[in-house]
Design a protein around this nucleic acid. Structure first.
Length: 730
DNA sequence: AGCACGCCGACT
DNA sequence: GTCGGCGTGCTC
């Protein structure tokens, strides 16, 4: 009897194992097994039952053990992970690995045990490493776990095992699983009465939930329009009908209020699932869901794989958020998988956004998704009044020009005078974005990446934002030796400093990745702001997400048009979303809001559309641009990055990749490149990319798969990153 | 990915 | 002769 096993290695195929008679009874599709693989033992998943052995020439090994502590994957989860493997072009084993919590270390381990025959005295006097290991084993009572040895010592252990001096044995560790006794569940709490707008949307949504069939919806409503209550009502309805609910959010850290709200509303039914949980907790949570003890999962991207059965509803809040896309293999998009999963399970999908992705809004406008419009802000609060400031006027006016315009200063003055609060968005960390040599015109670049290093004055370090490189500020230009260096571009630190000078009596704090690095710092900052201890927060895009601050009446945006210049087809979309989101922070309470947007190109259509908060006009404009250039969502896109420390090899391999794709394309795909990636070098690796586009996504992915497979040995697979539906091409 | 295998240079 | 460093190619 044979089993086809998916193992977590980047090889897009299954491996066949013999099933020992003793294990045959417990084996079924979806069961975890330990199998010998290339000299080690891996945990894999049985996915198929081939009736015959693979052809000649390979020694078929046997399944080593059945892992009983992990419940088998359900048929629908096998189907979903298989889809991930075939669509995002990774191995099935990698897809399964992404779908489950990371293995707990020490369920089983390999021990190196010294055998009686081992006598260090018989070793050659030069075999110091071997003798050392034998002696170390002796001191440790004869055995050590292989995983505790350094890689070089592992090699020696294997050599000694081949000589018969030590043996490698699998040791089972006691799997401590706390027994959970099911408690009777308290009834769900009633929520607030829906507003008329919410009630109207629910009137359309509830019949879809009652039908119990696949039905995608887009809940389109401004920040503060009350989308959360619609999600919760839909969840209550689904649970009521005995089906389970999956509620996805971009980042769990931003949702403490939501967590509290959901647990209060559905006591005892909710499970939190995200990669920030400690491994053990993650396994416990996963098991509770798998066992059916919890029927509502709130989680981030990877929770799309939550082992819920009879799924009736998937909520994807802030569906446009880039966090739904995984940056590493498998590069899946949780939002897109929501559709795949809902379709196969007959569930309702509810996407929510004030600024939907171009993809989702297009589906809605073509009628593929039901568009649910959630009108006006709660209690009919008006949209904020937006002013666009032309920064060129600041220079024309003469005098000292800082990142904070005269208009923004006036507005801040008024705002603080009324005892209200303000948020200032500057989407760039640090003090100065670059240090420039006035003599030779060079900027201080990272040694490993083709980007300028950022000056962080707070801790006096020059940092690369692409790799870990950092060093003190050079006295003079590293290129020509002249000095001193000039500061270019103002980041959050500098803006914070400027504001402190301009408003010495106000309490001003900064919120960016640097100031929130320490655990709890982010929450503490927000708490102080909510409590009125802070008047102004200056920060990066993280200030635009989550949280409702009723006393914020002013939002300022510094260099709003900067991100429009990025060489990325989504630059306008991202800028529009960020501006709309941050503008939505102004005037959420009783007080009216005001937004000051500073730009060097104030007439840019995207800024004007964002100022009017006119999403649909933005969509119509942007979709025409995407159509003209054949970019998503009009065409499907796959990006292949070739990267390696050797520039020549990258160029050569990228040509091979492009040639293979053109061969495969047969004129039916658009193959662009190869060309340098906009960031040409990261961490010492040169990068060139090829973009492939096509109207039909299935055909596109199959062609890329065939082309990459056809490259065989000519291009090492590890030098390629294949990104299906990339969010950015930088 | 990560492991074995094989070839090379350093060291004894 | 060993040993270990690194490039290549395979893993049931």
């Amino acid at each position: 009897m044979y089993a086809a096993v998916a193992v977590p290695v980047p090889v897009r195929r299954l491996f066949t194992y013999l099933v020992p008679t003793g294990l045959a009874a417990g084996l079924a599709a979806g069961v975890r097994v330990r199998v010998p693989f290339a000299g080690r033992t891996l945990e894999g998943t049985v996915v198929e039952w081939p009736s015959e052995a693979p052809e000649e020439g390979v020694e078929i090994k046997s399944v080593a053990a059945l892992v009983r502590s992990i419940p088998p994957l359900s048929a629908s989860m096998l189907e979903l992970t298989r889809f991930v493997a075939d669509y995002y072009l990774c191995s099935w084993g990698e897809a399964i690995a992404a779908a489950m919590p990371a293995p707990l270390p020490g369920r089983t381990r390999t021990m190196v045990r010294r055998l009686a025959a081992a006598d260090p005295a018989q070793l050659s006097p030069r075999a110091t490493a071997r003798r050392g290991l034998l002696e170390r084993l002796g001191r440790a009572g004869g055995a050590l776990p292989l995983e505790e040895l350094a890689p070089s010592s592992r090699k020696i252990a294997r050599a000694l095992a081949a000589l018969g001096w030590v043996e490698l044995v699998e040791e089972e560790l006691a799997a401590a699983g706390p027994a959970v006794e099911p408690a009777p569940l308290p009834p769900p709490a009633p929520g607030p009465t829906p507003t008329p707008a919410q009630a109207q949307v629910l009137e359309q949504l509830l019949p879809a939930l009652a039908a119990g069939e696949y039905a995608p919806h887009l809940l389109f409503g401004a920040t503060g329009s009350g989308k959360t209550e619609v999600y919760l009502r839909a969840a209550a309805e689904t649970l009521e009908r005995g089906r389970s609910v999956l509620y996805l959010v971009p980042e769990i850290g931003l949702t403490p209020l939501l967590i509290a709200k959901i647990s209060a509303r559905f006591p005892g039914r909710t499970e939190l699932l995200h990669s920030g949980l400690p491994r053990r907790r993650r396994w416990e949570a996963w098991s509770r869901v798998r066992n059916g003890e919890r029927r509502l999962v709130l989680g981030t991207r990877s929770a799309i794989f939550a082992p819920l059965d009879d799924l009736g509803l998937i909520v994807v809040d802030e569906e446009q958020d880039g966090s739904y896309k995984q940056a590493e293999t498998p590069r899946y998009n949780g939002r897109d998988l929501a559709v795949v999963r809902a379709r196969s399970e007959g569930a309702v999908v509810l996407f929510g956004s004030a600024t939907p992705s171009m993809e989702t809004f297009r589906h809605a406008s073509l009628g593929r998704y039901t568009l649910l419009r959630l009108g006006g802000r709660i209690e009919q609060r008006p949209l904020p009044d937006v002013e666009i400031v032309d920064m060129r006027d600041e220079y024309r006016a003469g005098g000292e020009v800082t990142a904070v315009s005269r208009r923004l200063r006036e507005r801040l003055d008024e705002c603080l005078g009324r005892g209200e609060q303000a948020l200032i968005l500057r989407n760039r960390r640090g003090w100065a974005s670059a240090l420039l040599c006035p003599e030779c015109g060079e900027r201080v670049l990272c040694e490993l990446c083709s980007v300028a290093m950022t000056w962080h004055r707070a801790d006096e370090r020059l940092r690369c934002h692409y790799c870990a490189a950092e060093h003190p500020r050079p006295e003079c230009c590293p290129a020509c030796g002249e000095g001193p260096l000039r500061e270019l571009g103002e980041g959050t630190e500098r803006v914070e400093d400027t504001l402190r000078r301009d408003f010495p009596d106000a309490t001003i704090e900064r919120m960016d990745r640097d100031s929130t690095r320490r655990k709890g710092a982010h929450a503490r900052l927000l708490r102080r702001f909510a409590g009125g201890e802070i008047d102004v927060i200056v920060g990066t895009q993280m200030i635009a997400k989550g949280h409702d601050f009723p006393r914020v009446t002013l939002v300022g945006v510094i260099s709003a048009d900067q991100s429009l210049g990025l060489p990325d087809f989504r630059a306008a979309e991202r800028t529009f979303q960020l501006l709309t989101q941050v503008a939505g922070r102004a005037g959420r309470g009783e007080l009216p809001g005001r937004v000051v947007v500073q730009a060097f190109d104030p007439e840019h259509a995207v800024l004007e559309l964002a100022a009017r908060q006119d999403y649909e006009a933005f969509f119509d404009r942007e979709i025409r641009y995407r159509a003209a250039l054949r970019y998503p969502p009009i065409a499907a896109l796959v990006r292949i990055v070739v990267h390696d420390p050797d520039e020549g090899r990258v160029a050569e391999w990228a040509e091979l990749v492009a040639a293979a794709l053109r061969e495969e394309a047969q004129g039916k795909l658009i193959v662009s490149g190869p060309g340098p990636a906009p960031v040409e070098r990261i961490r010492g690796r040169y990068r060139r990319h090829v973009l492939v586009r096509s109207a039909g996504r299935r055909r596109l992915v199959e062609a890329v798969d065939a082309a990459v497979a056809g490259l065989g040995r000519r291009v090492p697979r590890s030098a390629l990153q294949v990104d299906v539906d990339p969010l950015s091409v930088l």
